[in-house]
């Protein structure tokens, strides 16, 4: 896929070109999107951009970010974003990741936190807590799409993507995002077998934000994650599933801003 990225909306880090939204002023927040792809026009993005400086790259393979042929896992993403922090010479960064972006954020934080001040994991995946015959995250590629929607959203009627209303171009972007998600998440399924053993290395204040009705990474899964990170705490967003930032943007933004501002 060829992509055309304007200079102001893209960055090239160590040979990897990224679509990247930069909006707002103040504390830098590096925001890593989930497997559904970037949502630059989502209401929560507007709300956050009024309060902080948002830096929201699109992972290679998603959206308009090209996919280098050597790129294939979440560890590649983690090193890429460590390079991005260096390149932009950012300090005191709030690192916030959603779902697989949360996994990526955790992989960054176990490696190096010297440019980070706080970590926010939102309905993150990436860890495995139970035995080999207990799949903690439902296999989204073996379930009917309508079932996946029920697990993902508190209110699928309102929030599930409306494929029947999309243009061909939008549907092709959905296809591209699905493919990229599968590349990063297929096997081991949505986790790194090593991550749980490394979470103890996270040495910055960490907040986990979870949708009360997340059927993919359940609140129970979130509590296990929280328990593995020293000093971390967890906030539940009511009436929200896997994407509380979309289903309850006000409550979500209020929750993360309290943590960012240290209240």
């Amino acid at each position: 896929m060829t992509t055309l990225l304007s200079a102001e909306s893209s960055l090239t880090i160590a040979g990897v070109t990224l679509e990247c939204v930069q909006r707002g002023q103040g504390r830098p927040v590096l925001l890593l999107h989930g497997a559904g792809g970037p949502r630059p026009s989502a209401p929560f993005m507007d709300m956050l951009a009024q309060r902080v400086r948002l830096i929201a790259p699109t992972h290679p393979g998603f959206g308009n970010s090209p996919l280098p042929d050597w790129f294939d896992n979440v560890d590649d993403l983690a090193y890429l974003y460590l390079d991005l922090l260096d390149r932009l010479d950012l300090h005191d960064v709030i690192l916030m990741g959603f779902s697989m972006g949360g996994w990526t954020a955790a992989e960054i934080a176990i490696k190096c936190t010297h440019r980070l001040s706080k970590l926010i994991l939102v309905d993150a995946v990436g860890c495995k807590f139970k035995d080999r015959e207990t799949r903690e995250i439902p296999d989204i590629w073996a379930l009917h799409p309508s079932e996946v929607n029920k697990l993902t959203y508190f209110d699928p009627e309102t929030f599930a993507p409306k494929l029947d209303q999309m243009t061909d171009e939008q549907l092709q972007m959905v296809a591209r995002n699905r493919e990229a998600a599968a590349m990063y998440l297929w096997e081991p399924y949505m986790h790194s077998p090593k991550l749980l053993r490394r979470l103890h290395r996270i040495n910055i204040p960490t907040l986990l934000v979870w949708g009360a009705h997340d059927g993919l990474a359940t609140p129970e899964y979130g509590r296990s994650y929280c328990a593995a990170i020293p000093g971390a705490r967890m906030e539940i967003i009511e009436k929200a599933g896997h994407t509380p930032q979309n289903e309850q943007p006000e409550a979500f933004v209020a929750t993360v801003m309290r943590f960012i501002e240290g209240k």
Binding site: L163, L171, Q172, V174, R178
Partner: peptide
């Protein structure tokens, strides 16, 4: 995901 071209997937969706 990844099996068919993006154009084909768009049609399948």
């Amino acid at each position: 995901p990844g099996y068919a071209s993006h154009e084909t997937v768009a049609k399948l969706l």
